[in-house]
Computed example of a mutant assay.
Amino acid sequence: MARNEQLIRQHKLLQLLELSRFGRTLDELRGDLVADLGLTKLHERTVRRDLEALQAAGFDIQSETVQRGRVFKLGQNTKDVHEIGISSTELIALSIGRELLYPLMGTQYWRGIETFWNKVQEAVPNGVFDHYARYRAALHVFGSPYKSYERQEGMLKTINRAILEHRLVEIDYQAIGKPVSTRRIEPYGLAVYQSSIYIVAATPQAEGDVAAAEKNARLRNWKLDRFRQARLLDEYFKPDSEIDLAKYLGSSIGIFSGDSPTKVQIKLGKRSAAYVREDPWHPEQVLEELDDEAAMLTVPASHPREILPRVLSLGADAEVIGPEEFRETVAEAVRTMAEAYR
């Protein structure tokens, strides 16, 4: 059996039972699992064993005989919201978190967020909710444009399954300004950055082809918007235990992340230094005063393009000192812009 295959089936079973008001027969559940998970075959006995395993784990799954046969459904102990105390302050925090996750709208993740939010609203006392509503009316969360990944939901399901089972995925990918290319990737996880979903994946390498220090160089963040198709392959990969996704994604300013970012030095004027101090670019940045009118910002970056828009936004009050590759990228952009505005 493929890695985590049983876990994936059982999680999907719970989702199907949650959405079913009148219960589902074994055959109906089997058919839904085959369709949703892209399976080639699945026996009813396997579905029955999965249901029994969930019951043994404590889920209240009940069965009854109706006109169309024996159906299974979730009992009230599983469907009802477990009683918890929640204050208006906690409700505000939860609602802010929900709005920050709007980029997930249209995906299977969002359905869980939305159904949970609706249950919480129904469960809290009217007084608590009224107090929350008054305070929430004065607080607005914005800055990330609305974006839906409903069109890519099928591909997300494929990629999620590949992540859990450590399976290779063949993708048709079209970067901006380039033709569609077919690639094979080893998906490790998902990342949400500035309203976009990225798949963190490695490109397959033959055993021994890459040194341990260079393994993370195979990782790349593939933007889901540019996926045209994603096909699950019957090939498996062994996850690299040395890859730390949290470290990889948090080591740089933007989505151009890497295991060994470059320290970039940027000379800032007094006004720009104040802006960067107020809204830091990175938790590991260092801002040193040079004199009363200037400061030196040292910040990790993995690619010149993630520095470029930030430096340009500060205008002539910011100058990249080094490395030369980063300085030249900004210089070239300034020359091109000057020519366009001549």
Rank of each mutant, 00 (worst) to 15 (best):
1 M>I: 09
10 Q>I: 04
12 K>F: 07
15 Q>L: 12
16 L>P: 01
18 E>N: 05
21 R>D: 14
22 F>T: 10
22 F>E: 14
23 G>R: 03
30 R>Y: 05
32 D>C: 10
37 L>W: 08
45 R>E: 07
46 T>Y: 02
48 R>E: 11
53 A>W: 04
55 Q>P: 00
58 G>Q: 10
62 Q>F: 00
62 Q>P: 00
64 E>I: 02
66 V>H: 03
67 Q>Y: 06
72 F>A: 05
75 G>P: 06
75 G>C: 08
80 D>M: 11
87 S>A: 07
88 S>E: 12
91 L>P: 04
92 I>Y: 01
96 I>A: 12
98 R>W: 01
101 L>C: 13
102 Y>G: 07
103 P>H: 00
105 M>N: 02
107 T>G: 01
110 W>I: 03
113 I>N: 00
126 N>A: 15
130 D>P: 00
133 A>E: 15
134 R>Y: 05
135 Y>H: 13
135 Y>A: 14
136 R>E: 09
140 H>V: 15
142 F>T: 13
147 K>C: 08
152 Q>V: 01
154 G>I: 02
157 K>I: 15
164 L>F: 11
165 E>H: 02
168 L>E: 14
169 V>L: 13
176 I>N: 06
177 G>Y: 01
179 P>F: 02
179 P>N: 06
189 G>A: 13
196 S>A: 13
198 Y>P: 02
211 A>W: 04
217 A>C: 03
219 L>E: 12
220 R>H: 14
221 N>F: 12
224 L>D: 05
231 R>G: 00
235 E>M: 03
239 P>V: 09
240 D>A: 09
243 I>R: 01
254 G>Y: 03
260 S>F: 11
260 S>Q: 14
268 L>S: 08
268 L>A: 05
271 R>N: 07
277 R>H: 12
280 P>E: 07
282 H>L: 09
288 E>Q: 13
291 D>V: 07
297 L>W: 02
305 R>G: 09
320 V>H: 05
323 P>Q: 02
323 P>V: 05
325 E>R: 12
327 R>I: 10
330 V>Q: 08
332 E>P: 02
335 R>D: 10
337 M>E: 11
338 A>F: 01
